[in-house]
């Protein structure tokens, strides 16, 4: 070899782990944006539905039980963000399953790095993508009448919330990816997300629903997540909005990450 390197330091410092995690996060983010066919739908569909709803449901805003809004689009903004982030988070987990399927994950495992760092880096990539999505939806819809009452501060909270939700859902999906090592299995959970989203108050206020459907929306966590963000858009900052948009998702997120890490440990132990 033309130059001789110093033998690699055997230390496993915190700084090094951080650098490795960051490299994995960077890789997974870049990779996501290099697949327009996967990223496109999770960006375009939520906007399509928002545009569709804005035109279709303008008269619905005067219904009893409907909150005070400037336009239906303003009402839809929170749902658009959550919808995009939910669907987008499948992408990262499917990529992880593909890594396991085609052997790239083995290459990562061959490196003398912390196993946790490899996974956390991947998940951080999902979080970044979720935040970018949230920012993009807000930027696109705001000029068309989706005014955020809590202004830029609220928008920032929504972006942060998008990242946290992407991290939470991404972790759960990654647990599926690690357990099954199949991208199809991960994508197979997609209809579940769809159902979760529809049987919530994402597209219409809970106050206008009735019967069993209302009961399901009442216990669906997605309802509260969307309502938290919606409060930031329609009303302004409040403790309850912050709790629904940030604190509760964070708690779910921590549990979800632990599940994913546990699944990774199980996989490594069963080799």
């Amino acid at each position: 070899m033309s130059t001789v390197l110093q033998p690699v330091a055997a230390s496993r410092s915190f700084g090094l782990s951080l650098r490795q995690t960051r490299a994995m996060a960077w890789r997974s983010t870049k990779e996501t944006f290099r697949q327009p066919a996967l990223v496109g739908p999770s960006m375009i569909f939520p906007i399509f539905f928002a545009a569709l709803g804005a035109s279709s449901f303008s008269r619905a805003t005067s219904l009893p039980g409907f909150p005070k809004v400037e336009s239906f689009l303003q009402f839809s903004l929170a749902a658009t963000v959550v919808q995009g982030v939910l669907f987008g988070s499948v992408t990262g987990a499917a990529a992880l399953a593909t890594d396991i399927q085609n052997g790239f994950f083995d290459r990562l495992l061959l490196a003398p790095t912390s196993r946790t760092g490899i996974l956390i880096g991947r998940l951080a990539g999902s979080a970044i993508f979720g935040a970018v999505q949230a920012a993009a939806f807000i930027a696109v819809l705001w000029p068309f009448g989706a005014t955020i009452k809590s202004s830029f501060g609220g928008a920032l909270v929504m972006v942060l919330s998008g990242g946290i939700v992407a991290l939470a859902i991404g972790s759960l999906m990654s647990a599926v990816a690690i357990k099954t090592a199949s991208a199809e299995a991960v994508q197979g959970t997609f209809p579940l997300l769809f159902i979760l989203l529809f049987f919530s108050s994402a597209f219409f206020p809970r106050e206008t629903m009735s019967g069993l459907y209302r009961n399901i929306a009442d216990v669906n966590p997605i309802s509260y997540l969307v309502e938290g963000m919606r409060e930031l858009v329609l009303v302004g900052f409040s403790t309850s909005a912050m709790a629904k948009a940030i604190f509760i998702p964070t708690a779910i997120c921590v549990v979800a990450i632990l599940i994913a890490l546990r699944q990774l440990r199980v996989r490594l132990a069963s080799r």
């Binding site: 390197l5 690699v8 330091a9 650098r19 870049k30 990779e31 290459r107 990562l108 490196a111 003398p112």
Partner: peptide, 17 residues
């Protein structure tokens, strides 16, 4: 999806270079 040099750089970080 990665370029050759990106993969080498990732590998370098993973091996603590």
């Amino acid at each position: 999806l990665m370029t050759g040099s990106e993969l080498l750089q990732l590998q370098a970080v993973l091996y603590g270079i």
